[in-house]
Amino acid sequence: MSRTWLKWMPAVAVPAVIVAGVLAVPLQAGAAVDLPDKTPQEVLELAAGSTVDTLSGTLEQTSELGLPEIPSTGDAATAEFADALDLLTGSHTVRVYQNGPDQSRVQVQDTMSERNLIRNGSDLWLYDSADNTAAHTTLPADTADQAAPGYTPSELAETFLAEVTPSTDVTLGENTQVAGRAAYELVLTPNTDDTLVGSVSIAVDSETGLPLRVQVEARDAAEPAVSVAFTSLSLDAPPADLFAFTPPAGATVTEETLPTKDHAGHPEGEPSGVTVLGTGWDAVVVMPAGADAAALAELTASPLYSQLTDAVDGGRALSTTLMSVLITDDGRIFAGSVPVERLQDAAAQE
């Protein structure tokens, strides 16, 4: 009898060892990281002084904004709308390469396709393998310094660090480890109750000051609403031929004149007439009626529009865990990291 029992031992031991291994790995990653003590101000300066401009790495980007899953099929307008929202839902693996200020490549990996944004000097290529299209833009000479790929934690971190005003408490969290590198964790907490943002954590590389991870937590939410983090990172210069792009044979190539840097579909620069009410975390952006009437009409005609928004007093509102948008019946748009009620108040006062 005891021999039979012995024979079944491996069948019990192997899963046990695997479970133990799976549990041990995150524990090890979360083990205390020993770094010289710094004040929050010193870490802010470390991040501001970061001079990293060559890197290759893989980013994991997740968004849990409480938006419904967007169907990717449908008519062209729906598909385009869904494409724009795509980066706001679910998770994405993105590879980024950067060499100096004017060479960069961003690859958004989808299951069976890939979107590439390649910058080489003044050439900007956008290639989408799903429909085999390439778009080329020649950048004006004065954009030479804006090379940072729009997806990296650095860019997101800069946005938040620019917000560090008296309305924000800056503290240091536990030291952490991101992509195998020891990092300080800056925690920015808005000290107003009017915003949906609970806190923003930025992991700052202890050696170079490069932001390695940015997590935005919504108020009263356990999981980060938005997270962008390196899963692997090397600071060596990537091979030069990565940035030399020629569209493949058979691809549909279009030449674009407007710099459409942001692939998500938002044109660069704000339309005229946009005003900002308030400052800091609870600021509300107001777009007057008629500023972009054609785009708005197209948007409201989409079947997804009624699916995503709820009817509220005075218009329709899109509310996510981190952000609210109110489109009033007279065509004005209010947006901000605030509850819908605050947008309604702003709309009533305008």
């Binding site: 890939e114 493949p248 044979a249 691809a251």
Partner: peptide, 10 residues
């Protein structure tokens, strides 16, 4: 002939 990869490289 030469193969086009997902990244657009050949």
């Amino acid at each position: 002939g030469p193969l086009t990869l997902l990244s657009g490289d050949t």
